[in-house]
Write a protein that binds this DNA or RNA. Structure first.
Lengths: 213, 213
DNA sequence: ATCTTTACTGACTCGCTGGTCAGTTACTGA
DNA sequence: TCAGTAACTGACCAGCGAGTCAGTAAAGAT
């Protein structure tokens, strides 16, 4: 009697214990960035990952737990790589600044991970511990890279002495703004901005401002 | 029998038709900025404004309507004022840049209104029309002020020719970032940054980068 | 004083969604 | 081939909060 539709064909679902968490986190990242944390339904996250909501709860304790996983996952070891790169660098400090900015954009800014920054800005008030983690482990260490390059240039006489805290922020602000823009107001405009060209202008202006002459 | 507590004292509530809307919008602004749109309860908004939720619905059709009112209200005519100021300005373009930035910070950045920017970034995806309104009427016009000052300086030979689109964004990014920071990750750090000093450094660097020499 | 108007209240409804769990089905290995 | 296991499903529940409305009382009119 049972209707034997698709019998012996592909099973209705597969067991894929390994792949599920990252698929769920990818789906969650997209939706959290797009709609915000509170406005995202877990049913939708599960659907986008191709599973049911029950499965989501096999891998994550709660919605907040999922958010934390998404943020921690996105951060990964990229900053540590960049730190090692900076320490080993032997060229001019101007080149180092350019490299750090380029790596930041190509490996983070131009990827979906850039959305995490927007997400943390939107949700910092509701998840203070998570915000602190992100601030300490991502923002602060990331900014530290620029501080290092600036300090290095000043020590060698390549740059004039400037307020390090201020100069570091001035390096980062245009890049962070561009990442945020892409995932917020930029969505409702036909944006002609070419980030790479923009950052080239940014570096040019910055280096003129840092010239020791 | 009725317990005559506070009889003949202050009435339980007052009729204040005129003041209610702005009081409600002020309360809503605070909570939206603090918790985000979806995570804010209208009961809390009403309570903070000292009324019941029913009263809120006398003045606003829905939660979304309240958000729109808050955003439009915050924007007000400040930009128009600044535009008039810029057109009438007779000093150097460097001074004009400094004035625009200073006015922006003191009249918006340093007030609760700065939170609207963060709010729009967080909610742009959920309210496209509102985001477009904010983009066109606030961001775009605001950036136009800097474009004007830069163009003016280039025309007079005070600044060297630069990509206007890029330079405009470079002027704004540090200010916008500081406003956003104040209302997000900045909440969980004992931030030592003095915005006024930071913007002074920003202008100094910027003007060195713009020097025509 | 008393009536009328209307700003305001707060208890209620109802849809929605985070979270649960008993049951189902794909795999495993003997 | 046929249990045994565990990954997965989806119907369900409980609580929450946006939005409603019949009733209340403050201010104004007569």
């Amino acid at each position: 009697m049972d209707i034997p539709v698709k019998s012996a064909e592909t099973p209705r679902w597969e067991r894929r214990k390994e792949a599920r968490p990252s698929e769920l986190m990818d789906a969650a990242l997209e939706l959290f960035v797009e709609k915000g944390f509170a406005a995202t339904r877990l049913d939708d996250v599960a659907k986008r990952a191709g599973v049911s909501k029950g499965t989501l709860y096999l891998y994550f304790d709660s919605k907040e737990d999922l958010l934390k996983a998404v943020v921690r996952e996105g951060y990964v070891a990229r900053i540590a790589d960049a730190e090692a790169y900076a320490r080993a660098f032997t060229g001019t400090s101007a080149e180092l600044l350019r490299d750090i900015m380029g790596m930041w954009w190509t490996q983070v800014g131009a990827t979906p991970m850039a959305g995490i920054t927007k997400l943390m800005i939107a949700e910092a008030g509701n998840f203070p511990e998570l915000a602190r983690f992100y601030h300490d482990e991502v923002m602060h260490r990331g900014m530290g890279l620029f501080t290092y390059a600036l300090q290095r240039g000043i020590a060698s006489g390549e740059f004039r002495p400037v307020n390090l805290e201020h100069a570091t922020r001035l390096c980062c602000a245009p890049v962070v703004m561009t990442m945020i823009w892409k995932h917020s107001l930029g969505l409702c405009t036909h944006d002609e901005l070419v980030p790479e060209a923009y950052f080239e202008t940014h570096l040019d202006m910055l280096l003129r401002g840092l010239r020791s002459a």
